[in-house]
Design a binder for these strands. Structure first.
Length: 470
RNA sequence: GUGAAUGUAGCUCAGUUGGUUAGAGCGCCAGAUUGUGGUUCUGGAAGUCGCCGGUUCGACCCCGGUCUUUCACCCCA
């Protein structure tokens, strides 16, 4: 009966009504908070020109871009490329040669790609609409992004990001506000978290201090793994990347300040980095930020973590990452300040800072904790049983009135067996069933059955509405 | 991208040292019960044993490939 079983592409998922209620709780919570702080929503296309995307996420990132093949007969577009490849194949080609030829063809036949994150398209948006935008521009964006990654636990090929960014303002108040948003969001979702903060300028200062200013990227990538793999492995990797032994030794003495509290860390760094102007600026920024947070009465623990580097190359100031405390899961939110993202698109001198909530991971965390408020998963509140044509006509206006009062209500379509209708209410977890037959119609009342307790009461429409509203 | 494991009914899983008709629980559908669901009882439907190929008289089982999911790397939300 069934031919080839249908399926969704690797790393993607369907979301049932049940799951969507839970996901919407996350989206609604975030959206509400974002708006409260004055951020406005935008959307950008799922696909962007590859020229917009390529080179923004480092070498790895380029590999993980989903590319969209042009429509039409693309062989004609660059015949040479294909001729070149077939010539190559007729001899015994080196792998490098093949890759080059393959890349050329890919570049010819693909001009668009699916977005990899929301930040780069946002930068493109800002540059493109700069004349209409009033700065500072506070925007939020909740849309899916795609990565051609190998799927794993907590990692999907299609997932939602919920970005909040403010561009066109240098003020550290923005950083503080974002952490406040994090605090409020996870507070509302009842997830215990820790916010890890660092500053790219401090990392630069450290690279200066150990005498390897050029190797900042190598250093941050290796350091990023410290917590996961331990110093030994990081050290190995640093050597592999060609850092001098002396430099690695000095790095160790700085990075391993884990025992200290925030203030001690800052004091320590201030002393060590005295010669680095950039480094000191970073220390000062963190100090200011922590000062703001105290005034804002942020409840979430905020912890300076020098090992926090994050893969992306475009951060220039603050770096954030949020981890759930009670669940094993990668970071569920992250971001930072980027001074020149719009510069890539020809609009230099605009500083921005933003964070991205990973909705799918938060969803996984919330599922494990099972902490959804009850009303967030409630759908229909009352189902009217359909007894027949006359009863149907009698019920329709009642249902309309109930809906007008803001209560989710349904009338069962068709007067099928009662058992069937009750089972429907049961399956949909509808808490109340309304029965209106001859008796009720004559007396102008409704028999309302509580599906959980099983008890049944006879009430008027007005009573029903006030009962379900409260 | 590298290494490893996994795949049997809608779901969770048995099973066969290679041998005729592949099982259970849950779920689903119908009836017992034409104004009462979640309990009970009775009956029923549902599987090319992930897909393709090979070995064999014979493959769900062995071998190769491929896809899916998962784990460890790599990277990341």
């Amino acid at each position: 009966m069934s031919i080839a079983k249908p399926s969704v592409p690797r790393g993607t998922r369907d979301f049932s009504p049940e799951k969507m209620k839970k996901r919407n709780f996350i989206f609604d919570t975030l959206r509400e908070i974002f708006k409260k702080y004055g951020y406005e929503q935008i959307e950008t296309p799922a696909m962007e020109n590859l020229s917009t995307l390529l080179g923004k996420y480092g070498e790895e990132g380029d590999k993980l871009l989903f590319r969209i093949v042009n429509s039409g007969n693309f062989v004609n577009e660059d015949l040479d490329a294909f001729v070149n490849l077939s010539k190559l194949l007729s001899k015994s080609p080196e792998e490098d040669e093949l890759n080059t030829a393959s890349n050329r063809i890919v570049n010819t036949i693909c001009e668009k790609g699916l977005r990899y994150d929301l930040t780069v398209p946002f930068a493109r948006y800002v540059v493109q609409n700069r004349n209409e935008i009033t700065f500072p521009f506070k925007r939020f964006q909740i849309q899916p992004v795609w990565r051609a990654d190998r799927p794993a636990k907590g990692r999907y090929r299609e997932f939602y990001q919920c970005d909040v960014d403010v561009v066109g303002s240098d003020s550290l108040l923005n950083e503080a506000e974002l952490i406040q948003i994090i605090d409020e969001a996870f507070g509302k979702m009842q997830v215990n978290t820790v916010v890890k903060v660092n500053n790219r300028k401090i990392l630069t200062g450290i690279a200066d201090y150990i005498g390897e200013p050029e190797r900042i990227v190598d250093i941050t990538i290796a350091i990023d793994k410290l917590e996961k793999v331990g110093w030994e492995r990081v050290q190995e990797e640093l050597f592999e990347r060609g850092l001098a032994e002396e430099a690695v030794k000095e790095l160790k003495s700085i990075v391993q300040v884990v025992e200290m509290n925030n203030i001690e860390k800052l004091d320590f760094l201030e002393k060590v980095l005295f010669a680095s102007e950039v480094g000191l600026a970073g220390v000062k920024e963190l100090r200011t930020l922590l000062g703001y947070l105290e005034l804002l009465n942020v409840k979430t623990a905020v912890e300076i973590d020098l090992t926090l580097a994050r893969g992306l190359n475009y951060y220039t100031g603050a770096i954030f990452e949020v981890k759930a405390l009670d669940v094993e899961m990668g970071s569920i939110c992250g971001g930072g300040r980027y001074d020149n993202l719009t510069g890539i698109f020809g609009m230099p001198g605009v500083s921005g800072v933003g964070i991205s909530f990973g909705a799918d991971r938060i969803f996984d965390v919330l599922n494990q904790l099972d902490k959804y408020p009850q009303d967030s998963t409630q759908g229909t509140q009352v189902l009217f049983i359909n007894f027949g044509e006359n009863e149907e006509k009698y019920c329709l206006p009642l249902v309309s009135k109930i809906r007008a009062a803001g209560i989710n209500a349904e009338l069962f379509p068709g007067s099928v067996k009662m058992k069937k209708q009750m089972a429907y209410a049961d399956a949909k977890k509808i808490p109340y069933v309304a029965l209106v037959g001859d008796n009720e119609m004559q007396q102008n009342v409704i028999s309302l059955k509580n599906m959980q307790s099983g008890e049944q009461t006879t009430i008027t429409l007005e009573e029903l509405i006030s009962k379900l509203k409260g």
